[in-house]
Amino acid sequence: MTQIFAHRGFSAAYAENTMSAFIAAEKAGANGLELDVQLTKDDEVVVIHDEKVDRTTSGNGYVKNLTFKEIRKFNANKKGMKKEPIPSLIEVLEWMQTNQLICNIELKNGIFPYEGMEDKVIQLIRKYDLSDRIIISSFNHYSIVLSYRMAPEIETAPLFNERMYMPWVYAQSIRAQGIHPKLTSITDEIIKGALENGIAVRPYTVNKEADMHRLFKINCTSIITDDPVTAIKIKKQYETRL
């Protein structure tokens, strides 16, 4: 049955990429999380989507120009009542010891090719013994290949925006076990083709109920959504039919 991944946590109701959003996703019953990582000036792996902190926090500037200590002072929960810091990847992986969630870590190294990011992320995954519960994805496919070479035991999945011809062939060529396509770039035929060829498909970002229905009907591997609660409600309709 299709799995539900909470995009940047339960980001429809909580500040994205915060521990509150991740904890809420788990409580809602999501199967997994999708989160983004960048490197600080002093090489800490932090969970934030944008290269700059301006949109999602009370601070400003590029993540790469700020130390971990500096970045932790910003409030990553601008909408909410309580102040929350940008999480470190360590914090998330430690918390994952208390549950069974799967986690898709997206390496945000398309704009700034953070030196050594793959190695740092892989070392942390191994330290917390989570290799079988992590998927590493990125729009930087060189980074995906490097991750696979460093850690063939950790699943990898290229992200892409455009429609690709027979993406399962491409995935197999870079030894990826899945693809994470933009929802609008994927047809039912492409999804079925990938699944038949043993490649997992996890489209992003699936927020409309009609799209959820469409993907549950064809038993897509997973959906990446801002709203796991709605997705779970719809998924239950399909579970009762089995």
Score class of each variant (00 low, 15 high):
residue 208 K to I: 11
residue 172 Q to R: 14
residue 12 A to D: 05
residue 137 S to P: 00
residue 125 I to L: 04
residue 167 P to G: 10
residue 58 S to G: 04
residue 176 A to C: 09
residue 52 K to P: 04
residue 197 N to Q: 11
residue 53 V to F: 04
residue 26 E to Q: 12
residue 69 K to R: 13
residue 102 I to A: 13
residue 95 W to Y: 13
residue 211 D to F: 08
residue 116 G to K: 05
residue 226 D to H: 09
residue 43 D to E: 13
residue 80 G to S: 07
residue 43 D to F: 09
residue 128 Y to M: 09
residue 169 V to F: 06
residue 34 E to L: 08
residue 219 N to S: 15
residue 162 E to I: 10
residue 76 A to D: 02
residue 85 P to Q: 15
residue 241 R to C: 07
residue 102 I to K: 14
residue 94 E to I: 14
residue 101 L to I: 07
residue 96 M to I: 06
residue 87 P to I: 11
residue 241 R to I: 14
residue 222 S to T: 06
residue 223 I to R: 04
residue 110 G to P: 01
residue 23 I to N: 03
residue 97 Q to E: 13
residue 195 L to D: 03
residue 229 V to K: 11
residue 6 A to W: 00
residue 186 I to R: 01
residue 57 T to Q: 09
residue 40 T to Y: 01
residue 7 H to L: 12
residue 4 I to H: 02
residue 33 L to N: 04
residue 109 N to E: 12
residue 80 G to V: 02
residue 153 E to Q: 12
residue 234 I to V: 15
residue 78 K to T: 13
residue 235 K to R: 15
residue 4 I to C: 04
residue 149 R to F: 12
residue 118 E to F: 05
residue 192 K to S: 15
residue 77 N to S: 07
residue 207 N to S: 11
residue 174 I to T: 08
residue 115 E to V: 10
residue 128 Y to L: 08
residue 24 A to F: 01
residue 36 D to W: 06
residue 37 V to C: 06
residue 82 K to V: 14
residue 18 T to W: 02
residue 134 I to H: 06
residue 230 T to P: 00
residue 88 S to N: 03
residue 123 Q to Y: 06
